[in-house]
Design a protein around this nucleic acid. Structure first.
Lengths: 114, 114
DNA sequence: TTGACATATATAGATTGTCGATATATAATG
DNA sequence: CATTATATATCGACAATCTATATATGTCAA
């Protein structure tokens, strides 16, 4: 599957925050969830995700805490903040504006209805 | 208007080719058309467009020819090639795949129907 | 028990696409 | 005559992602 990576640019943060809106998650889990939910279209790489999570934490859109799993493996969970919720909400509006604009140009009423 | 520029990444080529599918155009005209059709969401910059057009010409997705307008100003028109048509068709499929995947993650049936 | 693979996080360097700034030149407008 | 719009072009900067690499532990099969 997978698509031209440059299409993904700009939407990754939105998608990660959306996952965290549903439940706290650790990095590796996000990669799997995103892959599963998108039916293998998004194959987010660890080298993309971890730096991104650190950035989101710096911006206070997420917070993190460590938790030990059954198998004694330590996982770093991320949780969305109030600021993160607000940010996600804005990004979703931008996303709607964006796809509407693309579809206006494509003249493709079948692609989206904003 | 205008949105986060990183969202635009990857879709610009598709939009330009789409414009050329409707009619031959010169660079400056494409900027205006794109702005108009997208209701001012896409404010494509000359510094983005011209290098892109040169790349598309190298890839043989478009060809160009010069034409003198009424006011004696010389314009460089671009025309989509057969290869360009094929490429656009593929890109549109990718676009559909992409927005479906994003909407699968967002769980937003209202954003698109692929 | 050892080697391979999945899990889990992390960083460095390369690549790509867009932008702002700058340059040039002509036409139209005040 | 000066400013703005038209029209094309290039360069350096920047942001986001990727590949490659590193580290370490758990699981499973040969």
């Amino acid at each position: 599957m997978a698509i031209d990576k440059s299409l993904v640019t700009g939407s990754t943060t939105m998608l990660i925050l959306k996952l965290l809106e549903e439940a706290d998650m650790y990095g590796y889990q996000m990669i799997e969830e995103l892959n599963k939910k998108s039916k293998n279209v998004f194959e987010l790489k660890a080298g993309t995700l971890y730096p991104l999570l650190h950035t989101l934490e710096q911006k206070e859109l997420v917070t993190s805490y460590e938790q030990t799993a059954d198998n004694a493996r330590v996982r770093k969970y991320y949780s969305i903040t109030k600021k993160g919720h607000k940010y996600l909400c804005d990004k979703k509006e931008e996303w709607k504006t964006f796809i509407s604009a693309v579809n206006d140009v494509l003249g493709a009423a079948n692609y989206a209805t904003a």
